[in-house]
Design a protein around this nucleic acid. Structure first.
Lengths: 206, 206, 206, 206
DNA sequence: AATGAATGAGCATTCATTCAT
DNA sequence: TATGAATGAATGCTCATTCAT
């Protein structure tokens, strides 16, 4: 096996880990499974990642990056309030100032966030589960907490461009709670309800 | 070993499972560890629970019961339903004497819920982690979802005695999101912020 | 592989362990090597011995028993002083009161012990190394110390039938020191010197 | 990492090896552990020492030097050679003022040796175990035997300045046997008994 | 009905060594 | 000359499960 000099190997192992976790969960992640998925020798995974926790940490970090990029690229969220207001009526379906929420000033943001979630749930369900599973793993793995905290921080920061930080934090918490209920109980995502509740949080600002 | 006729064995095994999970997480749960913790022969655990999933389901159900009882017994929450009932239907803005939140009608409920959480976080951290770990396990274990759904349902029902069902559901989601942030990122529980955001959800009712 | 119901399996594993250690040293002892040597499945060794230390302890104990039996069966040592004295001159070669040692009263015991060592060194060298290696392993493995202490105790007791306990202990120490020098430096066993020094210890009694 | 031209590296690696062995035993010695302890690249250890046996040999040699220096520096033993030299050749029973042993001529030497041991056991127990473990390793590693033999030889030579060579050899054997019993069985060092038995060996000279 | 001996698969991890630089 | 990336073998150990009793 002449595979020396593979500078991307570390990266490929992380990607393989994400695929393994997506398929079988963190419980299915082992040096062996990830080595097989990445098509590298077993020793290579232990060489690059001294422990599974280390690999898990790297995987969570990558997952965060993936999500951040996805959010940044999301059309629904990218829209700026000013532009929106300026947009002529008859525009896109979701952004027209209060589809459901009573028309308070928070309607636009609430609507956009709801749309992001809608897109997210409409896409590959495995991807959401993957990201949540990694994120939730921090509950029992203290080494993951700093990375989980980074993620939460970054989500709050992103929303802070549209509202005050405390409200942003609450929006993230509510979104997470809503997602969790959908994912854990197998119930359907209810866009109207979500939009309404997000709007309450935004509009409740003193 | 003359332990025949032990009608409580099933129960003792479940309790042992909860202790094992509290100590080492679900990953540490095995027929062996639970048998040792319950001081029961190895074969006994496989006899009473055909698979670990079965045991896990029973454990989650018990955990839910424990939490429900704790909530029912909580002084903070058990409070003023009587007053509420006594209040004239369709009356004014409700209970205005909320401690903390600016005086919106949701102040009292928000305050009580915040207090419940405060008590919860002040107590044994292991207990919270245990309950959350079991609940979150439903993400990857479909067999647990019905039980997780039961739990969510029951929480919503409990809150529905104080507000409308949709708002109750959102309160549960927000509470879960807040708890998750505390547990996953290791940050401190912020009572004022929690109270304020809960109140926004309650008071936002159309 | 239908090998259920093998009540002697534990014993066979210990015997196999002794053979493995004799051949490759404690460093060569592993669950795998011992399983192969005993012709049992790998899992069988870990089932019967929860850890290698446990297996090692059992092996040292067995080794001690083997040695004790060998000593008991040794003709050289079995001879009783009274009988010896009563025996007509021209008897066996080594027991005649002071072959080398100056004729002090300790000559007989010293001579017999020397003969035991001589027999021992003349036999299978691997057996001695095996026993010493197991015994010396207690230096770094506290769990072995009680067993090593048992062995030392038993050796002292055996010699105490022929002299006072303190002297017996010193004889054992001297014998061990002499053996060690032979085994560690590769030098030859010097019977005359050994006899002489043992006699000094015995005869030095106040 | 600009650590070229490091003439002391070999030495530092050996010192690190001694620390590793002191901490985790020979079983804990590996190229990796010693490289980490010496703060040296992994490749450096395999470069300077072709095999672990080579490193082990060097470590045993250094350990011997350390012990020899310690013995030389010991006040207890460094004692009265002058008096000895001053004593008329072929004189009477030697140094009779032995502290403890009944006054035989060997009393002084026995007393001094006992004191050396007492000091040794009073000091860092890890150091003794380290030295013994390395020394005893020769049992199973023929390459170490010459070095172990050097050590024994040197100890005998040192004692030979105070008594005849055969007696010196026996004293070393007895001392080793006594130490071994203490180290292997975890029993306490008994100075009176040791002094008495050493004296018997010295005084037994024909 | 209940148990514990038995087993093969799998695990994380450590390792000596090789080799291209 | 010196190094660290790389790798295949081996380690101790845990496990769910089977099955004869």
């Amino acid at each position: 096996m002449a595979r020396r000099y593979d500078p991307e190997r570390r990266t490929r192992i992380i990607d393989a880990a994400l695929r393994v976790i997506a398929a079988d969960g963190i419980a299915g992640l082992s040096h062996r499974t990830v080595a097989a998925e990445a098509d590298v020798p077993l020793g290579s995974t232990t060489y690059h990642f001294g422990s599974l926790d280390e690999l898990l940490t790297a995987a969570l970090r990558r997952s965060n990056e993936n999500f951040a990029r996805a959010l940044r690229d999301s059309e629904a969220f990218a829209a700026q309030p000013a532009e929106c207001a300026a947009r002529p009526a008859g525009g896109g379906p979701g952004v027209e100032d209060g589809a459901g929420a009573g028309g308070g000033p928070g309607a636009l943001l609430a609507d956009q966030l709801t749309q992001v979630l809608e897109e997210w749930f409409a896409g590959d369900r495995g991807a959401i589960e993957l990201e949540y599973e990694l994120y939730l793993a921090a509950l029992r793995r203290p080494v993951l907490r700093p990375v989980a905290a980074e993620w939460a921080e970054s989500a709050v920061e992103t929303l802070s461009t549209r509202t005050d930080p405390a409200t942003a934090r609450a929006l993230v918490a509510l979104l997470e709670g809503v997602c969790l209920q959908v994912l854990l109980t197998g119930s359907a995502f209810d866009a109207d309800y979500t939009r309404e509740m997000l709007a309450r949080v935004v509009d409740g600002r003193a």
